[in-house]
Every structure is written in C-alpha cells, then in structure tokens.
Amino acid sequence: MELFSYAFMQRALIAAVLVGITAPAIGIYLVQRRQSLMGDGIGHVALTGVGLGFLLSANPVWMATAVAVAGAVVMELIRWYGRTRGDIALAMLFYGGMAAGVLFTSLAPNGSNANLLTYLFGSITTVSPQDITAICLLAGFVVLVTVGLRRQLFAVSQDEEFAQVTGLPVRLLNLLVAVTAAVTVTVAMRVVGLLLVSALMVIPVAASQQIARSFATAFALSVVIGVVVAFSGTVTSYYADVPSGATIVLLAIGVFVTLTLLAAPLAKKRARRAAGDGTRCTLEVPAARPTEDDVRV
C-alpha cells in the first residue's frame, strides 16, 4: 500500500476519518431538530473566515472556525428571538458570508479564486501539518460534546419544551449544538469542502435511519457510515485522481440508496421473526350466508 507511505496521504486519511466521525455525530442532532441545512448555512458563513485568513495571512482553518462559531451563535439567537422574520435574516447571513469571503480573498495579496476553490470543494491532499493539528483538536471537542452529552442533546432535540420543563439548560445546550456544528464545518472544510459539508452531516444519518430502530444504533451506524465513506472516498480519489469531497458524498449517497433498498426486506424479516410462533388469530365466523353466494367459490 504505497499511499500510506506518503506523509500528505497520511494526513489526508487522518483528516478524512475525523470528518467521518464528527460530521454525522453532530448531524444526527441537527436532523432530529429539523435543521438539516444548518451545516450548509454555516459553511457559507465560514467562507468569510477563509477570506479573512488570506487577507490577514492567518491560518484559514482557525479564522474560519472563529467566524463560523460567531455565525452559528447569531443563527441560534435569530432562531430564539426573531421567529417571524427569521428566515430573511438567515438568508442575509448566508449570502453575506459567502460574498464577504469572495471579496476578502480577492483583496488579499496572494489570494486568488483558485485558492478559494480548494476550500469550497475540499482539497484533501493539500492539508498541511498545522491544519492537521487544528483538525485533531477541533474533532476532539466535537466528539466530547456529541458523545458526552448525548442524553441531554437527545432530549433537547427530541422535545425542546419538555426538556425545558425538566430544568435542563436548554438555551445553553442549543448554543452548544450550534457551536459544535460550526466547529464540525471547519473540521470538514478541507476534506469535503464548505459546499458539501452539510451532505456528510445529513446523508449518513438519513442512511442509518433506514434500518436503525433506536437512537443509539442510529448514532453509531451514522458514524460508521461516515468513517467508511470518508476513508474509502479518500483512497478512491487518490487512485482515480478525482476530487475527494465529491467522491465521498457520492459514496454516501450510494450507501443511502443501498440501505433504503435493504430496509424493506429487513422489516419483513423482523416481522416474520416477531410472529415467530406462527399462531394466527382468524376469527371463525359462522357462515352467515349460504356458500353458493361466495363469488370466490
């Protein structure tokens, strides 16, 4: 396996696996609270951070993290306070974030739109050692939150009003979900790109939903799917010389379709097992009419 001997491929695979873990881990809560597209919005906003990174010659990953987290907090506050005009405000935030990113990049001395493209669609083979350090730290945070607080986040995402009446710090937990989603976006940015980040948050979850029956299984299965497609997508992109982000997302969709097709026979098998003893409960109806009347006879 020659690809494991290249330092850049080692970094690429580490980044891919971390993205495969973190994106579905936070994505499942977003799907549960019907905010599937939140990752997409944060991705747009994060572009401003990338542009600022170019402009100020700072590490774009950290800059993107700072801006994405700020954007996610604003989104959460809009959700909380501005229910009525909320979607307009969000649209402003998303497209403003994207536009500012493009503008800052073009103003930067060594910035070009080609640089920007690697962040938009991911360019896993250009992940630098500094990037890897940042990605590892950020991924650690995401895992800590999504696994450590899984019971609380499940409760808040499943029934927010009820969670409030149990006395959980719901606003704080909501904010934490938003911030964690923002952090995940920047973890995934180098691997699948800002425009495809949301796909890796949502598709593995959608796929696991097809066969999982409990939240715990759905969570574990989404992460497994995430890791498998991110890893195999990266390997494929190396051999086939195709972009990693697009490969990973298409593989994830492939898994989704496969599990969807498997779901029906699986449910049937479960039903058959549940009815295991084969006892039936047909009520013996006394013949009310002469049998001649029965057309089927």
Partner: peptide, 20 residues
Amino acid sequence: SGVPATVREVVSAGRLARTK
C-alpha cells in the same frame, strides 16, 4: 423528525430532570 428513538430512550429523557 424521522430519527428513530425507542420507548425507553424517550422515557429516559424524563429522568434528566434528576440526573441533569
């Protein structure tokens, strides 16, 4: 929401009032 949850998982969410 479409994300599966078992009866026990939902009922356990109530107990968070005590475990926080």
